[in-house]
Amino acid sequence: MPFKDKLFRLAKRLLTSTEEAEDALQEVLLKLWVNKGKITAYRSVEAFAVTTTRNYCLDRLRSKQASNLKLAHSNYTDEASSLQRQVEARDSVSLMHKIMQGLPEQQKMVLQLRDVEQYEFEEIGDMLEMNPASVRVALSRARKAVREELIKKHNYGVG
């Protein structure tokens, strides 16, 4: 499946841990397989797959929140260690990773689908069940939020 990794990356963006994302991918692909008769009726198989992944991950997050379980992410580092923080602040990529993790789900998804996967607004609209204009608005808001956080952290690191 050519877009398998895109689904994986979206799942990981939302669920944070690689393990969880792989579980999600497996579930989603199984669902797609089971519904393969229905898929052909969809405008785009890829859009359907992304929508399925999004729904699965959001359900997962909701049920986790409900049962008050914390996400078991392996790549989360406690902010208590100031040395760790300094090292990470120097590594701008992991700083970006942290900023992304702090964003609301909607913003994570639009950034993932546009800036990472480079889908057109119409496609993202299909995937997230929004109209292209609101995709654009959400995207602009998300990008500005990232910029703001980056400037904030940058100033903090320097000062």
């Binding site: 398998k4 792989e22 701008s92 970006m96 950034l111 993932q112 910029r147 980056l150």
Partner: peptide, 24 residues
């Protein structure tokens, strides 16, 4: 230069792939 991490991060994110083999 302060914007560089944003674009670098997104291009780097694109390379991540799932390692687990999924058999349908």
């Amino acid at each position: 230069r302060e914007y560089a991490p944003v674009f670098r991060y997104f291009s780097r994110s694109r390379d991540e792939t799932s390692t687990r083999e999924i058999r349908i």
